[in-house]
Computed example of a mutant assay.
Amino acid sequence: MSAGFSTVLKVLALVVFAAGLASCREEEQGRPLHYVHGEYGGKKDTPLTAQQERALQLRVLKQKN
């Protein structure tokens, strides 16, 4: 191999490596890659307070009429 071809090959490898790093967006890091069918994999819901539950019950009652 000639020295010029070797240099071009190194630069090309560096460009491909830099493009690969740039394509990894921060918001995509840590996301699930494998899903289990029929199973929710998200964060757990926070439980409702008694006041929130009562407000929902009142809304349901209003919608029935």
Rank of each mutant, 00 (worst) to 15 (best):
1 M>D: 10
1 M>V: 14
2 S>Y: 10
3 A>V: 02
4 G>M: 09
5 F>C: 10
5 F>W: 09
5 F>D: 09
6 S>G: 13
10 K>Y: 10
11 V>W: 13
12 L>K: 15
12 L>E: 15
16 V>H: 12
17 F>A: 10
17 F>V: 09
18 A>M: 14
19 A>K: 06
20 G>T: 08
20 G>A: 08
20 G>R: 06
22 A>C: 07
23 S>H: 07
25 R>A: 05
27 E>T: 00
28 E>Y: 08
28 E>A: 08
29 Q>D: 02
31 R>M: 05
32 P>Q: 10
34 H>C: 08
35 Y>T: 15
37 H>F: 07
38 G>Y: 03
40 Y>C: 05
41 G>N: 06
41 G>V: 08
43 K>W: 00
43 K>E: 03
44 K>C: 00
46 T>F: 01
46 T>A: 03
46 T>M: 04
47 P>H: 04
47 P>Y: 00
50 A>E: 07
51 Q>S: 12
54 R>T: 06
55 A>Q: 07
56 L>G: 08
56 L>Y: 08
56 L>C: 08
56 L>N: 14
58 L>K: 13
58 L>Y: 07
60 V>A: 10
60 V>G: 05
61 L>Q: 12
61 L>V: 02
61 L>G: 02
64 K>N: 01
64 K>W: 03
64 K>I: 15
64 K>L: 15
65 N>A: 15
